[in-house]
Design a protein around this nucleic acid. Structure first.
Length: 267
DNA sequence: AGGGTAACCCGGACGC
DNA sequence: TGCGTCCGGGTTACCC
């Protein structure tokens, strides 16, 4: 489900339910959900930890505990929910954390791609990530310089979390359309003006996603409404809202990619 | 360095 | 209705 806006929405929603609560017990129902450490170590370390804060870095949710950070990556189909009362596992629940207020946190993940890390060294995992799209480092000038430092197709580069952190398939297609850039255009050929437009588009589309509480696609995720405002994503065969040209779907780096061939010429 | 591909998983959609 | 195939919000390893 989640790209940056969806993770941001989940983090905000969970804050009042988690901050200040203590983790009383943990139930792991799919062992591979734990990226680290071992099951025995995990339970030993997490039980008794109070949740001090809930935040986000790129697509990672961060539960700041007293002695550790619990990093949660939802990957394709993960979701987090608070449920009341005694633990009653539902289908696809992978990790359950019993809280001190008669609620529990359920990590539900149909496709089993999601992972959690319990670590006192979160930078080992988060340190490889590129800048936050809303952070100080990410300026139009930074983008221009770093696009030219590489020679890669724009879309795979924007999806590369070590280049810029937080964009996924949907928001990448959307921001390339807004910036009138073709996903296969080479990064080192982007002009200063195009880089500025792309920078603006990235921030605008992520902001819009957050404002609409993320996008709800297929059966995964709930609550968001950004899917009703997609410009190109999933709209192949329909007219471009800017120029009326039929939106096309192509494959770029194994990913379904949606463009308006008029607005995003390959030059 | 950059690209292509397969893999990890499951369920929904679609074609026959 | 049933069965086979394709598809995918993400990321990594590996190969050329």
């Amino acid at each position: 489900m989640p790209e940056l806006p969806e993770v941001e929405t989940i983090a905000r929603a969970l804050q009042p339910d988690l901050i200040g609560k203590t983790i009383l017990s943990a139930e792991v129902r799919w062992a591979r959900t734990l990226a680290t450490p071992s099951l025995i170590q995990f339970k030993k370390q997490i039980v008794g930890q109070k949740i001090l804060d809930v935040s986000r870095r790129a697509k990672y949710l961060i539960l700041n505990l007293e002695d550790y950070n619990l990093l949660i990556h939802l990957r394709m189909s993960g979701d987090l929910m608070i449920r009341e009362g005694k633990i009653i596992p539902e289908k696809h629940d992978r990790l359950l954390l019993n809280l001190s207020d008669h609620h529990y946190l359920a990590f539900n993940d149909t496709r089993k791609f999601g992972r959690v890390w319990l670590t006192s060294q979160p930078e080992e995992i988060l340190g490889k990530l590129g800048p936050e799209p809303f952070g100080k480092v990410f300026t139009a000038q930074w983008l221009f310089e770093n696009l030219h430092a590489r020679k890669r197709s724009l879309k795979p580069l924007l999806l590369d979390q070590t280049f810029i952190a937080g964009l996924g398939n949907i928001y990448t297609d959307e921001c390339l359309h807004i910036a009138n850039l073709h996903p296969l255009a080479s990064s080192n050929n982007v002009t200063k003006e195009q880089a500025a437009a792309l920078h603006k588009a990235i921030r605008a589309v992520l902001k819009e996603g957050i404002r609409r509480n993320g996008a709800s696609i297929d059966w995964v995720y709930r609550g968001g409404e950004f899917q009703n405002y997609f410009r190109v994503y999933g709209r192949d065969g329909q007219p471009c809202s800017v120029c009326g040209t039929t939106i096309q779907k192509l494959t770029v780096g194994q990913r379904g990619t949606h463009i308006c061939p008029t607005c995003q010429p390959m030059r």
